[in-house]
Write a protein that binds this DNA or RNA. Structure first.
Lengths: 200, 200
DNA sequence: ACCTGAACACCGTTCAAGT
DNA sequence: ACCTGAACACCGTTCAAGT
């Protein structure tokens, strides 16, 4: 029919895609569903954002853009690192699908870890040590989220052929969260020792 | 044409799928490409393995089935935990696509961690503590692999809008491996302290 | 019983054609 | 300049029809 120019911005596209993602999950996000949501044919999306990979990149970026909490004045570095990690953990845990954020999409994490790296350097970490600490905390969080995400799936076939009496490495959601905090403690204590800094 | 019965086993299907996966990557694995590889129409695959999700489950299982190394007699628990984790790390790092192994596919890890859990219990861990230790090591490895996998991608758009002089949290592959070992040390030391056991 | 081939409802992506 | 609609080459999955 030839609609008038839409002033369709990249932001509007990403927003529509995120809306579909949050409401209906990752598999519901397609160039076609997003363009339909915007009342447009798929082609304009390719004009603005290139392709689906770029759209997913932009969605991951938006999902994580404001995840880092603001440091409080006088806050101990371990305390801030715990808050930062908890914020990342919560954000990723409440995301419908971790696949959005894995693979080759590291830039959003780099952005998110900037305030943490600054805070650590202010506490006496060298630049390199601060970067390493950020990495360790991101790995810990991603590992947890990737392994523990989506434990609510319909049981499939044989389920397990092992011993009776409960899954040998199965733990509850609450236990997993406690274990995650223990992991954090190991890392933060290790970092303090390794960098010759005081623990809280 | 009506070929004679194929005696097409589930194993043959999974093997063909893995061959395609190893050679051409995850996106090349489809019910159609796998069936074509076997010289069959797609329908028999659905008869044997159900659907694509079940095929991916079986592929992940096969990928990890023999990953746990055999414990050596008299080997210290920390030493075996390090070998076990290194084996998992190597297996996942040489896998063309980590997506195969994330999401809701935890059963292969449960199987792989059985020898480790036994070894830890033999060293004095309670059953619960052994399970927790397995979890921590799996998280650490998965976090590393998921974040650091595929760092060889063509640079896309703006790449970064930050400061000049190198990516603030960018580290080389060799540095990443060193950092992974440091992470392991933090966890193993923490486990030793937390469970009142001797470090090596 | 087991396989084939066509079919259905989707994808990502491109491109001539319209306004 | 920007959008539409059709098209191409794929998907996962199902099912009547053949042997």
């Amino acid at each position: 029919m030839g609609r008038p120019p839409l002033d369709l911005t990249t932001d509007e596209i990403v927003e529509a895609a995120c809306a579909i993602f949050l409401e209906s999950g990752m598999d519901a996000v397609s160039m076609r569903t997003v363009s339909a949501q915007l009342g447009v044919s798929p082609e304009p999306l390719y004009k603005r954002i290139g392709n689906k990979e770029a759209l997913l990149d932009a969605m991951a970026k938006r999902l994580l853009v404001d995840v880092a909490p603001r440091p409080r004045s006088g806050e101990h570095w371990q305390k801030y690192a715990m808050r930062w990690t908890a914020a990342l953990h919560d954000r990723l845990s409440t995301t419908p699908d971790v696949r959005l954020v894995i693979g080759e999409r590291r830039e959003p994490f780099v952005e998110a870890s900037r305030p943490l790296a600054e805070q650590l350097q202010a506490a006496g970490f060298t630049s390199d040590a601060a970067v390493q600490a950020c990495r360790l905390l991101i790995w810990a969080t991603m590992g947890f989220v990737v392994v523990e995400a989506g434990r609510h799936r319909a049981p499939t076939r044989e389920q397990r052929g092992g011993l009776p009496g409960g899954n040998p490495t199965g733990i509850s959601s609450a236990e997993a969260r406690r274990l995650f905090r223990l992991n954090l403690k190991f890392i933060l204590d290790g970092l303090a020792r390794h960098n010759g800094l005081s623990a809280e």
